[in-house]
């Protein structure tokens, strides 16, 4: 079966700086795939290119077999892909509920949206308690949950998450990873970018290791966890 997402040899530039030097990878339906690598390796650039916020100079991106390389960013979500961006990027001046509703911006059916809202509230009871609060006043962990809940409101088949554990306490990190696992078990495919390689590999099926714009290693998450070079570079405490 063809992969859900297929990225084929993309090169991405910021001005004259080449940030991605020919990246290829794929994500199959139902998987959690982790993308790990040091700060500045190009992880965020990859996610931005997949969801159309950046355009590759060369290469192709296929989603469900369709070429989406030139599709504008605002049309991506309607194809079944949601992006939880680095740094949460919630709308800080709007209420929690308004943020969540914006996640369903492209959906029409009010009843179905209500159903998804209940699903999101079940997954993140804290968001329900705070639905009328201004989003900018939430704690870091709550903002992360809001960013995830907002993404789920589009009922995506595929979610891209960029460093969801960034800046959170160890307890919250574990909670967030539990939720990612649960979202995946509920049928959503996940592409997970993390600097917390150990945690990411512990829930992922497969992983790619990124170094300065190149994929240098890939394989089953379990194998990578035992790989000496990965251990040394990313798993040392």
């Amino acid at each position: 079966m063809a992969p859900l997402l297929q990225v084929d040899n993309i090169e991405v530039y910021y001005g004259v700086i080449k940030a991605l030097k020919g990246i290829s990878f794929e994500v199959n339906k139902g998987e959690i795939v982790a993308l790990i690598g040091a700060n500045g390796a190009g992880k965020t650039t990859i996610l931005h290119t997949v969801t159309g916020l950046l355009k590759p100079k060369t290469g192709k991106i296929l989603f469900k077999g369709n070429d989406i390389t030139k599709v504008p960013a605002h049309k991506i979500v309607t194809m079944g892909m949601a992006h939880v961006p680095e740094g949460r990027r919630i709308f800080s001046q709007l209420s929690v509920l308004d943020n969540i509703k914006l996640g369903a911006f492209t959906r029409k059916d009010k009843e179905e949206i209500e159903e998804t809202l209940n699903y999101v509230y079940e997954r993140f009871p804290r968001l329900k308690e705070r639905k009328n609060q201004i989003a900018g006043t939430l704690s870091g962990g709550e903002q992360q949950m809001l960013a995830m809940g907002r993404a789920l409101m589009s009922k995506p088949e595929f979610v891209l998450m960029d460093e969801p554990s960034m800046g959170l306490s160890p307890l919250l990190v574990s909670e967030i990873f539990e939720i990612i696992k649960a979202i995946n078990e509920n049928g959503t495919t996940v592409l997970l970018v993390e600097q917390n390689a150990k945690k990411a590999l512990s829930i992922a099926d497969r992983a790619y290791v990124l170094e300065t714009g190149n994929i240098v290693l890939s394989g089953d998450a379990k194998d990578l966890m035992n790989d000496e070079s990965v251990k040394k570079a990313y798993l040392s405490e």
Binding site: T51, G52, L53, P72, A73, H74, K75, I76, V77, T78, A82, H83, P85, R89, I90, F91, S92, Q93, L94, L102, G103, F105, T106, R150, S154
Partner: peptide, 11 residues
């Protein structure tokens, strides 16, 4: 507030 995040919502 955030054009990029708005586009990710489908705006």
């Amino acid at each position: 507030e955030d054009k990029g995040a708005a586009q990710l919502m489908g705006i």
